[in-house]
Amino acid sequence: MRTGIRAPVSTAVAIAVGFLVLISLLIPGLEDLRNQILNWAILLAAIALLLGLANLFQVHFNKVRDREKPVYSSILLVAMLVTFGLTLWQGSQGDVPKWIFNNLQLPIETGLMAVLAVSLTIAAARFFQSRSDLMGFVFIGALFIALLAAAPVFGLELPIFTQVVGPIINSLSISAARGLLIGVGLGTLATGLRILLGADRPYGG
């Protein structure tokens, strides 16, 4: 059995669908077609998410089978299957899924975010180790101003930062952020066009 679909088919699909959606975004009259394609894409993305779930399951099932840190992987598998089954059964607003979300998932996730406070402090404290040039000084200097402008420090108000220097730094960074965003937009535009031109074929074409 030959299972490969020839690349031109995939490339043609990507280009045709991509241009259709793009044209429908730029000129009016094709909204129905676009919505149709977007509905398919939303459905396919959801199915892809399930394939992701299957991949996660497979990777960790294999680890359990191969006795490669099986405790961790079996915890993951049990947690995944129980949450999946219960949420499907009761609905995402059901009591048990809500309990799991509020008392298990949320504390860990906010906890990980809280750990970031330490990780980022360490990163900033070690910043000069890797970068002791002018830009390093500018970064740390601006970081100090931005931090000191945020709130009183050890209970002491520092109006020079909150009312004078802080707003200046903020205003400059808003303008520079605009430049950064336009640049990101240009990069996005070019990257998207490469897919539509068939020059980039990440779908295996």
Binding site: L186, G187, A190, R194, A199, D200
Partner: peptide
């Protein structure tokens, strides 16, 4: 990699003529 530099990945890793052309058009 800051700003739009990530989108230059292809051109900087010799991914093909189109990547370099798109960087120039950028």
């Amino acid at each position: 990699l800051i700003g739009e530099e990530i989108y230059a990945t292809g051109a900087y890793t010799n991914a093909g003529a189109a990547h370099q052309a798109s960087l120039r058009s950028q």
